[in-house]
Design a binder for these strands. Structure first.
Lengths: 336, 336
DNA sequence: AGTCCCATCTAGAGCGCTCTAGTTGGCGTC
DNA sequence: GACGCCAACTAGAGCGCTCTAGATGGGACT
């Protein structure tokens, strides 16, 4: 538990200069084969580990990208995974900073700003735009999964409207016409999803059947919406929920009311979260391309760092429909 | 987007020495009131942010504790939250390193070892004990939520056996006697939970009713166990599941089989995950004291760093029963 | 007036590394 | 044998900060 060995220690043991050890450790050219082996052996014997922080200090570039994420969001986990992969490929390191119940996003961001990052990737930040813009004045900032109205910030997100187009197309393909949408209120993305729903319904000539029920992000919101739907004189045969949690609430309420899913009503979620994949939920849903978002986000940060021209401030990725067990052919007797 | 300002820049602007700026920024004694204000103003104008990495280099202590966690584990999120709070109180910083699908725990640990941490907190690591011990030779290591058979490593975890004692006590209190346990196979903690279940049943004189059904960690395992239970000649009136996910699988299968929960059978989970709290699941479960585990884990690292005597290598925290809607009085006609 | 003290401030040596600008020495060349 | 050359190696400055040791100067006190 004594002081951790430094380059100097390794140099002394191998009988060479500090600089040479540095060369060997970095695997840089300029060292003889035998010496290289000797140095490596000495480093190994001492259990030497390069000090990443000192290393970055000495170097002009840190090749460090800061990432803030919400510890409660399962999807952020997928994004972090994708970011690690992308960073490894590009030769960058990641510095994580979590937003938790008692450690706000402001703190998470401030932490990264002290950490010598060259750029920042913020996952679904709820911070005021002004704060994001302030951060972007010092280093390139890419926001993932949230729209930001500012020319100072790069945004990478999923095409929410397209997600509902996919959903409605799928449902009409199954013969559904009375398709309702349980929306997300003022949640990020909700407006786009509402718009996508309305557009798609219109495209299929179903404007008359358009029906938006107020919902929200949680199971309880879904449950409440289910009650509202069940009370309707002419129930919809399919429901496009704002997200998977909301859809789960719907499913539960329908099941309790002995309304068969997908026999009597089809349900589609949004997110393809773990929840949707559970075998006993088996929810048809819209999946976001986590790896795509991650790779694109990191790519943009790096492009900015390299001074490469970045064309658009906002990149929107198409989602993908994952068909599972909560959608089925509309029953003939239920058609208009 | 130009070079970030340094102490030197602030010093120049305020017309004082670098050292004085350092004093002011650190809020250390030794600076006049007016000068302090002037320096602060200069720093603010330049948008100065202390460089955490350089700062740690200069200091003998880094006051940095590395934390590895699994991005897929919801409970780790709670622990991270608790760790941040504990670290803030103790004047320490946290360096996070995530284990993801494509970035293993080995990488997560190696990352931390390069990061100049003074100590490590590993959340539920699955790494071989030898690797953990190797890490512990350089710095204090505390493992949370996993038992490790080594004198070199501190462990902080929940008393799994006690969790099942609580469960069985609760159920017997409701009049249940035929209480089954769906176990976790060879998962961490499973053996202790099995033992706790058997002990508690014996304590209540219910050894004859002891019934352990092989299960697992997932919903599917729970579903399979449910089928096995339903096939039993004399069904149990209550089931203690290995964890919440397993319990959810049970619930779903019971519901599909039109077996009322908690009317005909009570179900108890373990973890108090988000899943259990969902209003439509509303699962009675055993909660781990996340904040307690986190505070204890960080406290141990700090104690080791301070050279304080640490009595036991392993600290076991009692769990807590959260009674919700999946448990109820046993029906009189179902009693033996 | 001389002395001491303390609050305030500065100089400068690190921390562990990287990197530029050398220095060294062995070998081929004419 | 003098020269040049290149691979192998070293010296030393510097990254942005901290921290110890020391300089400065204006009272309070004798």
């Amino acid at each position: 538990m004594n002081r951790r060995p430094t380059l100097e220690d390794v140099a002394a043991r191998a009988g060479v200069s500090r600089a040479l050890v540095s060369i060997v450790i970095r695997d840089a050219p300029g060292a003889g084969v035998q010496t290289r082996a000797r140095v490596l052996a000495a480093a190994d014997e001492l259990g030497y580990r390069p000090d990443a922080r000192a290393r970055m200090l000495g170097r002009s570039r840190t090749r460090l990208v800061g990432v803030s994420f919400g510890v409660a969001h399962a999807f952020h986990g997928d994004l972090v995974d994708g970011l690690y992969v992308a960073a490894r490929d590009a030769g960058y390191e990641l510095a994580l900073s979590a937003a938790t119940a008692r450690r706000g996003e402001a703190e998470a961001l401030a932490g990264l700003e002290q950490d010598r990052c060259e750029g920042l990737v913020l996952l679904g930040p709820q911070l005021p735009t002004a704060r994001l813009v302030a951060a972007a004045q010092h280093l390139p900032v890419v926001v993932v999964a949230r729209a930001v109205r500012s020319r100072a910030i790069d945004v990478v997100r999923t095409d929410d409207a397209a997600g509902l187009h996919l959903t409605v197309d799928h449902l009409t393909g199954l013969g559904h016409r009375r398709i309702a949408h349980v929306d997300g209120g003022s949640a990020p993305g909700a407006a786009d999803r509402r718009r996508g729903y309305a557009e798609a319904m219109a495209r299929h000539g179903l404007t008359a059947h358009t029906c938006v029920v107020p919902g929200g992000l949680t199971e309880d919101d879904g449950a409440a919406a289910a009650d509202a739907l069940l009370a309707l004189p002419r129930r919809p045969t399919a429901v496009a929920a704002f997200n998977d949690r909301c859809a789960t609430g719907l499913l539960d309420r329908f099941r309790r009311a002995r309304v068969d899913v997908p026999g009597e009503v089809s349900v589609v979620g949004f997110d393809d979260s773990r929840l949707a994949r559970l075998s006993h939920v088996d929810l048809t849903t819209v999946a976001q391309d986590g790896d795509g978002l991650a790779a694109l986000a990191l790519g943009r940060v790096i492009a900015r760092l390299d001074g490469a021209p970045v064309d658009r401030r906002e990149v929107v990725l198409p989602p993908r429909l994952v068909v599972r067990g909560t959608t089925a052919q509309a029953r003939l007797d239920s058609l208009d």
